[in-house]
Nucleic acid binder design. Sequence first.
DNA 1: ACTTGACCTTCCAACGACTGGAAGCTCCAT
DNA 2: ATGGAGCTTCCAGTCGTTGGAAGGTCAAGT
Lengths: 136, 136
Amino acid sequence: MNIGILARRSGVPAKTIRYYESIGLIPKARRSDGNYRVYDERDLANLRFIHRARRLGFPVADVEKLLALWHDQRRPSAKVRELALAHMEDIDRKLEELQSIRRTLAHLAHCCRGDERPDCPILDDLAHGNSSSDTK
Amino acid sequence: MNIGILARRSGVPAKTIRYYESIGLIPKARRSDGNYRVYDERDLANLRFIHRARRLGFPVADVEKLLALWHDQRRPSAKVRELALAHMEDIDRKLEELQSIRRTLAHLAHCCRGDERPDCPILDDLAHGNSSSDTK
DNA sequence: ACTTGACCTTCCAACGACTGGAAGCTCCAT
DNA sequence: ATGGAGCTTCCAGTCGTTGGAAGGTCAAGT
């Protein structure tokens, strides 16, 4: 299987597969006579795993750990759970920040008439920081 | 006012102020005899504006537009409102994605016992994508 | 046999928004 | 004059790709 097929079947772009090889997330691929990378079903399974973990927002470093745990038949599931929970806390922090920002923005946009006139509470807030943009 | 003072008073690190100058977000500063950057209260007001806009998550390109509108006495507030609303839509998209990821993660972590045994629904899901990690 | 076009290779650069660090200059107080 | 804080420039690194150039390979069609 060439890299293009692997890309289509895994959902990971060829460019990204090469990148993953370059940073050591996946092993160096065997090469054909014409120096093309050659892959098999195991590589596909690996890449699908990686793709799903990335879509769940795990950083590449975590994906590496998850892969290692996946390949380790004797892993304790506690370690995986720990990684997932830590990542969730990260997400919760981001959610809270985004929600706070969203609230401020919604309030300001609501206060702003949004017409041809120049007076604008959004700019006033950015300029003087009186009200709600002090989100932390 | 030297760059260190400006940094302290604006909340923007000196390094970042130089970076903003280098990308043209703020004008090139006047220099002292010893080639130090010299700032005044207007620069401080500018930087505070930038700092608040950035904290609200506006990308630097938007901050540039907001700054220009702020300096334009004849701006229509509609333009500012438009920028703010577009940014809010962006935030809403991110919120939805994060929330979807969070739900999946919470479900998986809930299903995983997290003990010394190797069987782990989180890894199973990443490996075979049966359930809920197909968030889009 | 030759040509076309799709696919592959490597390498370098860019994205966004900084941040770190090295090497060296300036300013002020002691 | 010496020390140390603060400033200067420049280059590199962060994170995870992505874009593009220049060139090699492969299979199909004429």
